[in-house]
Simulated assay, not measured.
Amino acid sequence: MTIIAAIDENNAIGNDNQLLWHLPLDLKRFKSLTQNHVVVMGRKTFDSLGCPLPNRLNIVISSNADYKVPENVLLFNSLSEALESALSKDSNPYIIGGGTIYRQAFEYADTLEITLVHTRIEMTDTYFPKIDFSKWNKIFEEFHPKNNKHLYDFRFITYQKKI
Rank of each mutant, 00 (worst) to 15 (best):
I3A: 09
I3C: 07
I7L: 12
D8L: 08
D8A: 07
D16W: 00
D16L: 10
L20M: 12
L20H: 00
W21G: 11
W21E: 09
P24V: 10
L25P: 01
D26K: 04
K31A: 12
Q35A: 09
G42L: 08
F46G: 02
G50K: 01
P52A: 08
P54M: 06
I61S: 06
S62Y: 11
S63H: 15
S63W: 02
S63E: 13
N64G: 03
A65M: 13
A65W: 07
Y67F: 15
K68W: 00
P70D: 00
V73K: 02
L75Y: 04
L79V: 02
S80I: 10
E84Q: 13
E84N: 11
A86H: 03
A86M: 03
L87H: 10
K89T: 10
P93F: 05
Y94S: 01
I95A: 01
G98M: 09
G98Q: 09
G99W: 09
T100Q: 15
A105F: 04
A105D: 05
E107N: 14
D110Y: 13
D110H: 14
T115A: 11
E122W: 00
D125A: 09
T126V: 12
P129K: 02
I131C: 09
D132A: 06
F133E: 15
W136I: 11
N137D: 15
N137L: 12
P145I: 08
K146V: 10
N147G: 08
K149S: 14
L151V: 13
L151D: 15
K162P: 05
I163S: 14
